[in-house]
């Protein structure tokens, strides 16, 4: 009888799906924390609400209002600066047009098929930590010959 079973077992095994052991990257301590948090309701996971007395609540409101107004002022002055820059750029272009139309045409020459270079950095207020990628190699287009 035992023999019989042993013979038939591998046959069955071909049809059975065997569940493999889970191989997750989470350590057991972290897993424990995750299960503990999943049991808690959403309300208890939020940081405790600050209980302020009426005077302090009004003071808090005043501070947030002043802060938002400061941010607003800064945003407006930045926008004004950018507009000024754009205006002076267009003014320079106009000057160039008057002085030498050839140079102007050369500067504004439309190059068909040429898009904005993707590798170009977005202009920022401060220089990046890594100033220049000296080892940068531009990706080779598929159809081009070497």
């Amino acid at each position: 009888m035992f023999l019989h079973q042993q013979i038939r077992k591998p046959l069955l095994a071909t049809f059975q799906q065997i569940r493999s052991k889970r191989t997750t990257a989470i350590s057991p301590e972290v897993q424990k924390l995750v299960t503990q948090l999943s049991v808690l309701s959403a309300g208890r996971k939020q940081p405790r609400l600050l209980k302020l007395c009426n005077e302090d609540y009004v003071k808090h409101q005043i501070i947030t209002k002043a802060w938002s107004q400061l941010r607003n002022q800064k945003k407006k002055s930045d926008e004004a600066l950018l507009n000024k820059q754009l205006e002076s750029m267009s003014f320079a272009c106009e000057e160039l047009k008057k002085i030498s139309p050839e140079l102007y045409n050369l500067a504004n020459k439309k190059e068909y098929g040429k898009r904005f270079p993707l590798e170009m950095r977005v202009p920022t207020e401060y220089p990046p930590r890594n100033i220049w990628y000296y080892d940068y190699v531009p990706p080779v287009a598929k159809g081009s010959k070497k």
Partner: peptide
């Protein structure tokens, strides 16, 4: 805190840290 009525809650209350420094500037 004048607006709090109970003595116990008055004793327990503390203002948020740093509020006294920023508030005059904002005002």
């Amino acid at each position: 805190p004048v607006s709090l009525k109970q003595r116990s809650s008055k004793m327990r209350y503390t203002s948020p840290i740093g509020l006294d420094e920023i508030y005059p500037l904002a005002y």
